[in-house]
């Protein structure tokens, strides 16, 4: 009855400050086969006669931990919880929301205004709260489409941009008619996006047939690269990167006509290494309605027999070893590091 729903009491809490409520949330989530996520700081709670009957969590703009007490389930509770969560997210400055859900809950979230972006068949679907999000992103990409028999794509974080990146982009551009270069937009790296993007822009100057794109939430972002669902389901390994790669295959590549994805080999970083291996599977295997994208690995360039990597540059920066940094990065990167990121040395005098 509508009026029973009026008895529901909603609250928004930062869970770190309320250990007692956190315990209640753990219990409620447990009843629904879920566990509390460490990154989720804000929770909307719904109580009936004091008892916690529903919750929804937010990690930045990703909705997580949505649970309704199985005994109290009613459409009115779940829709109220999700409505409240959407308003709370808006108040926190998050209008574009994402969520991961199992296939059996897609229709519920579809009724809450969420739309599927991509599905890892049988396992998980990434949804967003707008019917035109990925569509209008693809449309805006399509305006930058250039014709060619071989159209390449590269995504780099460039944290910061090195001669290794320059080499990778040059090699890739030489191998195709058009090359689309994306810079990861998520600000989770040592160097902020703005600086990383500027360094890439300056660093790739002179390379022909190149289209430089800003990154987006649809590419190696907190939303597409969430480990959330998989940790929870104990599905590790292959699926971890699937959502991100399938978005590339099913939306980004078709919009730009990308036929090949280029990637540097990665001897140091296990995450990137794994990503490269997964890339071949999710972009090439016969598992999607979208045509396959060929993955091309390019051997890293070296300096003094050691592959150049951004992590090495950051290590040298911390050690203030600018003599060696100069061998690994283009002049534009060197200048920015020296002027903006150099830690003043304590004077011996």
């Amino acid at each position: 009855m509508a009026e029973d729903c009026e008895e529901l009491v909603f609250d928004t809490i930062e869970v770190a400050f309320f250990p007692r409520i956190r315990n209640e949330l753990v219990e409620l989530l447990g009843k629904c086969g879920l566990s509390i996520e460490e990154g989720v700081d804000t929770f909307v709670t719904c109580r009936f006669e004091g008892r916690l009957v529903g919750c929804a969590g937010l990690e930045a703009n990703i909705v997580k931990c949505v649970a309704i007490d199985p005994l109290a389930r009613g459409e009115c509770i779940s829709l109220k919880v999700v409505s409240e969560m959407i308003h709370v997210a808006h108040d926190l400055g998050h209008d574009h929301l994402f969520l991961y859900t199992r296939p059996n809950n897609i229709s519920f979230f579809a009724g809450c205004g969420f739309y599927p972006i991509v599905e890892v068949p049988g396992l998980v679907t990434l949804m967003e709260n707008t019917p035109i999000g990925i569509r209008s992103y693809s449309r805006s990409l399509a305006r930058l489409r250039r014709d060619g028999a071989t159209v390449g794509g590269i995504v780099i974080n460039a944290n910061p941009f090195t001669l290794g990146h320059r080499y990778l982009v040059e090699q890739a551009a030489a191998g195709c008619d058009v090359l689309h270069l994306f810079v990861v937009a998520e600000d989770a790296s040592y160097f902020p996006y703005r600086d990383r993007f500027d360094l890439v822009r300056e660093g790739v100057e002179g390379i022909p047939n190149l289209v430089l794109h800003p990154g987006s939430e649809y590419m190696i972002s907190r939303a597409t690269f969430s480990s959330y669902f998989f940790k929870e389901k104990n599905v590790v390994g292959d699926c971890f990167t699937a959502v991100d790669l399938l978005i590339f295959r099913e939306h980004i590549a078709p919009a730009l006509g990308i036929t090949h994805r280029f990637v540097g080999t990665e001897p140091f970083c296990r995450t990137t290494n794994k990503y490269n291996a997964d890339m071949k599977y999710w972009l090439q295997a016969d598992l999607s309605g979208a045509p396959p994208v060929q993955v091309v690995e390019i051997e890293r360039t070296e300096y003094g027999a050691v592959p150049i990597s951004a992590s090495e540059v950051r290590r040298l920066l911390a050690a203030d070893d600018f003599d060696r940094i100069a061998n690994l990065v283009p002049p534009t990167t060197l200048q920015l590091l020296a002027t903006k990121y150099r830690t003043p040395r304590v004077s011996a005098a």
């Binding site: 459409e75 308003h87 209008d95």
Partner: peptide, 18 residues
């Protein structure tokens, strides 16, 4: 600015404007 009004409850609607 982006704004919201309403809910997803029955007999209501959620409006998002940007």
């Amino acid at each position: 600015r982006e704004a919201l009004a309403g809910t997803l409850e029955s007999s209501d609607l959620l409006v998002r404007i940007a």
